[in-house]
């Protein structure tokens, strides 16, 4: 059944697949992950703040995002962000933000909910005595969080944060619904153009597998390295 397959199409489309598709995928993943971690950490702190309204709002946001399919959120923001933007800058017409910006905002906000849960677990894993000791030295709550709790929480949770980023790396392929060309989108376009669906989708699967499997193995090795000796 594989007799009439032509793998030459892969070689000829490599510059397009990687030069454009993969660059897009990696860029979106890196930006959304770093911004998502920052926002997620903020959400985790708010949720653990114990301030009634704030804490519930953060919890509600996290629960909402985690309960919706990602594709739905991508659509939602694609149609909503222009109107929100218009409302923010008081413009009478919807703001053109472009598909990439829309995707970036979506992935950041969506992943932040997952990063928030990871960071919440990380913050809670730091013994109460650490906070007590830092407070006893005269530090403010903000200083304690910044210099004592978060650095330890972040280190403890680094493997989980990276694993979540690997999932994000795969999820970015959903941007095809916005007609954006990520790695899978690029492979798909070549596949349709040349009628080489099996070859291209096989190749895409192999690339995703190799990258994610290698990254996961590295994360596992990192896990034993970064653990703080107690």
């Amino acid at each position: 059944m594989f007799a009439n397959l032509d793998f030459g199409v892969i070689v000829s489309s490599l510059p397009y697949l990687f030069g454009q598709g993969m660059v897009f995928t990696v860029t979106l993943t890196a930006l959304a992950a770093s911004m998502g971690v920052v926002l997620g950490t903020l959400l985790a702190i708010l949720r653990l703040s114990g301030v009634p309204g704030v804490s519930h709002l953060a919890k509600g946001y996290v629960e909402l995002m985690r309960s919706l399919p990602l594709v739905l959120v991508i659509f939602w923001f694609y149609f909503l962000v222009p109107y929100i933007g218009a409302w923010v800058v008081r413009s009478p017409t919807p703001i053109q933000v472009g598909a990439f910006a829309s995707a970036l905002v979506t992935f950041t906000l969506f992943e932040a909910a997952f990063f928030a849960e990871i960071m919440r677990a990380g913050i809670q894993s730091i013994p109460k005595g650490q906070t007590a000791a830092a407070l006893a030295l005269g530090m403010t709550r903000a200083q304690v969080m910044r210099t004592v709790v978060l650095p330890q929480a972040f280190r403890n949770m680094l493997p989980l944060l990276l694993t979540q980023t690997i999932i994000l790396f795969q999820d970015t392929s959903l941007v095809y619904v916005l007609s954006l060309t990520d790695f899978l989108g690029a492979a798909s376009k070549v596949a349709q153009r040349d009628g080489r669906l099996v070859e291209m989708y096989l190749f895409a699967a192999v690339v995703y597998f190799l990258i994610c499997f290698t990254a996961s193995s590295l994360v596992r090795r990192l896990h034993s390295r970064v653990a703080i000796i107690r």
Binding site: P127, G129, Q130, A132, A133, A134, L135, A136, L137, G138, M139, T140, T147, V148, P151, Q152, R155, I228, I229, R230
Partner: peptide
């Protein structure tokens, strides 16, 4: 915070900051 900075406290479980070197623990 100001009051606490003038009151030294030593805990049962030491509570040094494990992610910082001894010097950084002393200076933070």
């Amino acid at each position: 915070p100001k009051l606490r900075s003038r009151v030294g406290m030593v805990f049962q479980h030491f509570e040094l900051f494990p992610h910082l070197s001894i010097t950084d623990n002393l200076t933070l």
